[in-house]
């Protein structure tokens, strides 16, 4: 599992990136940087603890509640610790037509966990998501920015093996 951050601050590179992002928006509209910064934060810590969100609020000079409200609205942000690889599989109609339910069933069985759970060794977290805009290439899941498409049981064996290394 990713440890809860004890020193909450961006790495120097990420801080520079954050400043660059904040500068994109017109004067007085810095709150627009909130979603991009939450992505940067999640990249660094894996999930968004309340300390991390407070830190982001500080960077943007907004109230912490404004960050909590936003972070909890969008499904990509993890508000609880997650495993090293978060597998987000699409459960929506078109992927199901392509056999998604069977393939995801196999994946769950293989990892021994259900949606919303993390393997005991902290390597994988499974998360059920809605349509990933890849319907013609389904079934599909994503792990961070990478899309894995046209999934079959065999593909899943390969991917899990690759990532378990």
């Amino acid at each position: 599992m990713t440890e809860a951050p004890n020193t909450v601050a961006f790495t120097p590179e990420r801080l520079a990136k954050a400043r660059e992002i904040i500068a994109r928006y017109p004067e007085g509209r810095q709150k627009s940087a909130l979603l991009p910064l939450l992505h940067v934060a999640q990249e660094q810590w894996g999930w968004l603890s309340s300390e991390v969100m407070d830190y982001v609020a500080g960077l943007l000079s907004i109230q912490p509640i404004e960050v909590y409200e936003v972070a909890s609205f969008y499904t990509m942000f993890h508000l609880e610790p997650v495993g090293k690889h978060v597998i987000e599989y699409c459960r929506t109609g078109p992927c199901c037509l392509m056999g998604g339910e069977d393939v995801y069933g196999y994946l769950k069985q293989k990892l021994g966990i259900g949606a919303g759970e993390t393997t005991p060794d902290g390597t994988f977290t499974l998360k059920e998501v809605e349509c990933l805009a890849a319907c013609g290439w389904g079934p599909v899941f994503q792990i961070r920015e990478k899309y894995y498409m046209n999934l079959t049981n065999e593909r899943i064996d390969e991917i899990v093996e690759e990532l378990s290394k």
């Binding site: 509209r29 627009s32 909130l34 979603l35 992505h39 404004e66 609205f73 969008y74 499904t75 998501v129």
Partner: peptide, 21 residues
């Protein structure tokens, strides 16, 4: 970037989201 929300495809929701809300 959005954050995972179909509703942000609706144009005014999109603008709210773009304002960091």
């Amino acid at each position: 970037p959005g954050g995972g929300a179909y509703i942000c495809g609706e144009e005014t929701a999109l603008l709210e989201s773009l304002e960091g809300k």
